[in-house]
Amino acid sequence: MAQQGSGGNVLAAICSFFIPGLGQLVQGRILPAIIFFVATAGLYATVVAWFIGVIVHIWAIVDAARYKGT
């Protein structure tokens, strides 16, 4: 599996930058991918809580970059 800081994690982080959860999907983690995508999209759609969506989006990027595998 990919180690932290490996090319796979960098690619996953870049994918999550553009679409939240896509990096997790690239890593084969389907449930976290769905959760990050739905949560971020839902929060971005809410006018009052869009800034929380930004935080969740950043969290998705960092999560993809730091994933160590099993």
Rank of each mutant, 00 (worst) to 15 (best):
G5T: 00
S6N: 00
G7I: 01
G7R: 01
G8F: 07
G8Y: 02
G8V: 02
V10N: 04
V10K: 04
V10T: 07
V10L: 12
L11Q: 05
L11F: 09
A13I: 06
A13V: 06
C15R: 05
C15E: 12
C15A: 15
C15D: 04
S16N: 12
S16D: 11
F17S: 11
F17G: 10
F17V: 07
F18D: 02
F18K: 06
F18E: 08
I19G: 07
I19D: 12
I19S: 06
L22K: 11
L22N: 08
G23K: 03
G23N: 06
Q24C: 03
L25A: 14
L25R: 04
V26G: 01
V26F: 05
Q27N: 05
Q27T: 03
Q27H: 03
G28F: 08
G28S: 04
R29N: 12
R29P: 02
R29L: 11
I30W: 10
I30K: 13
L31Y: 14
L31V: 15
P32C: 08
P32F: 05
P32Q: 04
A33E: 10
I35R: 03
F36T: 01
F36V: 02
F36D: 04
F37H: 11
F37M: 13
F37L: 15
F37D: 09
V38G: 03
A39M: 14
T40V: 15
T40Q: 10
A41M: 12
G42F: 12
G42V: 11
Y44K: 03
V47Q: 08
V47M: 10
V48N: 04
V48R: 13
W50Y: 13
W50R: 09
F51Y: 14
I52C: 06
I52V: 15
V54E: 09
V56E: 03
H57I: 07
W59E: 07
A60D: 15
A60P: 09
I61E: 12
V62F: 12
V62E: 07
